[in-house]
Amino acid sequence: MALPLPPGLTPPEIAFLCEMELVTVIPRQKLERLELLGGSLPPLNPPHRAPLPLWLALLLKRQRRANILPPLWLSPHSLTAILDHETEHGDGFSPPPRLPPLPSQNTLPFSPPFLPSSTADAAPDALPYHWLELGEMLLETAADDFEDPDSVRKLLRGLREVRMAKLRQVVETLDAAGGVNMNGVGGMEVAEGRTFVTGVIDGLRKIVTSREQQKKDRDREERENGDDYDDDEMEMQ
C-alpha cells in the first residue's frame, strides 16, 4: 500500500513529468477534438502544426500518424552555442529560459512541465528544465525528424558532461545551513544529485545541531528581552 520509494523523484518519475511537456507535431492524419482529463485536445488537421503533450506526440509518432518538430534549442547550432557558454562560464549552469510574465496574485502560476518551453516557437537560446529527458526521448523515438541526430546526440552528451562536472563542484560549497543556488539545473540532474547534495547538508547539520540550538535560544532570548540582554538570566533557564 504505502509507497516503498525514498523521498525525492526517481528518474522514471522525472521522465513521466517530462512527458507532460508540450511539443509541436505535424499530423499526418486527421483527429477530432478530444476532451481529455487534462483539458481538451486541439483537432489535428494535416498539415497544420499543433501543440501536443509529449506522451501523445510519441504515441502518434510510433504509429506513424504524425511527425514531431524538435524545438529550436535542440538544433546543433543552438546546442553548440549553449555548450560554449557552459564551458566558458565555470560558475553555475547556463541561464534557464526567460520566465513568462508574472501572473496576478490569485491566478495559479505555471511551471515546467506546463510552460511551452519545447514547442517549435520556444526560445532557441536556453535549456529548459527537462532538456536532457526530452532530448533523449525525442532522439530515441523520433530520430528521423532531426536534420542531424548524431551531432545533436553528441552535443547533448557534451552538455551532460560539463554540467555534471559543475554539479560535482557544488559539493565544495555545501555547508550545514543549506542555501545553495542551483539556477538553471535540469530535472534529471536534480534526481541524480539529490541524494548526495541533501545527504551532505543534512549530515553537516547534524554535526552542528547543538551549536545551532544554542544560537537559536540566544536569538530568541534577545528578541524577547529587547536590548537589555542578561547573561545571568540565561544561566537560570
Partner: peptide
C-alpha cells in the same frame, strides 16, 4: 530575503530561482 534560523545564513530568493534549502525555511 530568507533567514536560516540558528545560522548566519541569509539570502534572497527571486522568482524562478532554484535553491537547496531546509524544508523548515
Amino acid at each position: 530575503e530568507v533567514f536560516v534560523e540558528g545560522t548566519e545564513k541569509r539570502f534572497e530568493i527571486k522568482r524562478g530561482d532554484v535553491w537547496v534549502v531546509r524544508w523548515s525555511v
